[in-house]
Amino acid sequence: MSVDRNTVARIARLARIEVPEGELEHIAGELNGILAWIEQLQAVDTTGVEPMTSAVASSLPLRADLVSDGGILDNLMANAPDPHDGFFTVPKVVE
């Protein structure tokens, strides 16, 4: 499997990262180097092997479904780039 500049542009779009036109080719080369190296995993026989999804075997703990926090609007907004009246803002999305 090999990626070309169009694939890089597509995954950059999926990842919501602007990549300058002029860098697509170079990044494709880098990603191909890494992907070719990763490819060696295909040679490992994993028939019947369960995927490992947790570093240490454990069951997820449950807690009581209660409100334990709140009333911290100022804290939540303290680092907002462009807050208005206690709201986060984004460019207009509805015409």
Partner: peptide
């Protein structure tokens, strides 16, 4: 970008799931 690629439709099983299985080994 690598992470997005290996998780993207069509490549998830070949890369990410495979890696999780090798991680078990």
């Amino acid at each position: 970008l690598i992470g997005t690629y290996v998780l993207s439709a069509g490549y998830y099983d070949a890369y990410y799931l495979k890696a999780q299985k090798v991680r078990s080994l």
